[in-house]
Structures are given as C-alpha cells and as structure tokens.
C-alpha cells in the first residue's frame, strides 16, 4: 500500500483507511484519487464489518487540486473526483468519517457520503466551490443536506463559508459528534467497536437498505452537476477567481 493512503484491516472486523498525503495535504490529485479508490476496493475484498475513514490531523480532505480546476476551465478534462463519492456511497459496509482536520469542498462531500460523521471543534468544514466561481460537484447538491440539513446546506453552498466545528456544534447539523480534535478518533473507534460486535451479514443487509436513498440522490446529482459544470467552468470570470482565490496547496 502506498504511503499516501494507509489501510489496516483488524482482526475484530474494523478497517481503518487513513488519507495521509502530507506533501499535498490530501488534495484530490489524479494519483491520490486513484489510490484512494484502490484502497476502498481492497477494503471491500477484506469484508470488514465497518470502515473508519480518517485523514491527517490538520486536514481530513482538501478537495480538488488547482491544476485540475484549471484543466476543467480549459475544457480538456471532465470531473474525475465523482468516483470517490460513488465508491463511498456504494461501499457494502458502514463507513464512519473521523474528521480530525478540515474538510473542504469535495473533502466535506466525502463525509456526506458516509454513514456516520465525527468532526473536530477546532477544524473547519465548508464547500468552497462557489467561492471559486463554479457550482458544487461530487454529489454535493443532493448529499450535503443529509449532513447539515437543507437550509444550512444552502448557506454553505451559496456563501462558500468554512464553518468552524465549534460553530457547527451550536447549529442544528446532523454530525454524530463534534468534539475536541484529540477525541475524534477515540469516538470513531468506540462506534466502530459497537458495530463490530454485530453479525456481519445483518450489517451488510442493513447497509444495503440504508444506502439506497443516497445511491439514487447521487445519480440525480451527477446529471445536474455535470450540466452546471459545463456552464460554470466556461464562465470567463471562473478562471480568474480560481487564480486569485484558490486556497489549497
């Protein structure tokens, strides 16, 4: 397994997938996406009872790389990171997002694809797409509502604001827990251990039933978001906005 993505499958049925690209801070470069998807596939082969998805201490996942956004403006490529949402939503086991660090853009959409989500008070969570001039992707327009509720999802998408975990804790969002950073992993592991006590076949059955809605939403989102991207990446000011205000690595 590469250094960027580490997968550990424990004897008790808990798998831990850690995104740890320290150089690029878990930005979705092409290689990163490929390795992440491969790691999820390897986890599927191991048939764990539950997967804990973690990132770096300061960054859970940072979303699209600037180069890829510029390529999208040029119209030379199509959005590739949707495959991450597909993989997570279609995972046959429950997935817990343990977000010690920030989750921004597609990084937060990853959490919205998961079954349970734990955030850190010190970290920031937001979908910055519109701040860079283009419309949200990766299933954000249909899945974010499940994570933070309709109205807050609207606020997040229209304003592109990165909310501090401590701020979200006082809002009515659907994170399971928002705790101090050091408590994120212990909390995730505690939930995972409770799930790991259960019968694997029933876990997979329940996951299949519970994931049906998200799979449907993701198909709907893909059609709409793809259409909006064709327009919004073509707006002349989008390129300039990315150039001036992109905040990733």
């Amino acid at each position: 397994m590469s250094e960027r993505i580490a997968l550990e499958v424990r004897e008790d049925g808990i798998a831990i997938l850690r995104m740890q690209d320290r150089d690029k801070k878990n930005l979705f470069s092409d290689d990163f996406i490929h390795e992440l998807v491969t790691a999820v596939e390897r986890a599927e082969e191991a048939r764990p009872k539950v997967l804990v998805l973690a990132g770096l201490e300061d960054v859970f996942a940072a979303g699209a790389e600037k180069k890829n956004l510029m390529d999208l403006c040029d119209g030379t490529v199509h959005v590739k990171d949707l495959v991450i949402s597909e993989k997570l939503v279609h995972a046959p086991f429950p997935v817990i997002a343990a977000m010690e660090g920030h989750a921004v853009g597609g990084g937060l959409v990853m959490a919205a694809c998961c079954d349970m989500v734990i955030g850190a008070r010190e970290s920031r969570y937001g979908v910055v797409f519109m701040g860079l001039g283009f419309t949200p992707g990766m299933g954000c327009t249909k899945l974010l509502q499940g994570l933070v509720g309709n109205q807050i999802a609207n606020e997040m998408m229209f304003t592109a604001k990165r909310f501090r975990g401590s701020e979200l804790a006082g809002m009515n969002v659907s994170f399971n827990y928002i705790v101090p950073r050091a408590e994120v992993m212990p909390k995730a592991m505690s939930i995972a251990m409770q799930i790991a006590e259960k019968n694997i076949d029933s876990i997979y059955l329940l996951k299949y039933a519970l994931s049906a809605e998200k799979k449907k939403l993701l198909i709907e989102a893909r059609v709409q978001e793809d259409f909006m991207h064709r327009l919004s990446f073509g707006f002349p000011e989008t390129r300039r906005t990315i150039e001036e205000f992109y905040a990733g690595g």
């Binding site: 920030h102 921004v104 990165r162």
Partner: peptide, 8 residues
C-alpha cells in the same frame, strides 16, 4: 489560528 481560520 490555523490556515483556514486566517482565511476566514
């Protein structure tokens, strides 16, 4: 302040 705090 972390990097995203500063941006905000």
């Amino acid at each position: 302040a972390n990097s995203l705090d500063i941006i905000e």
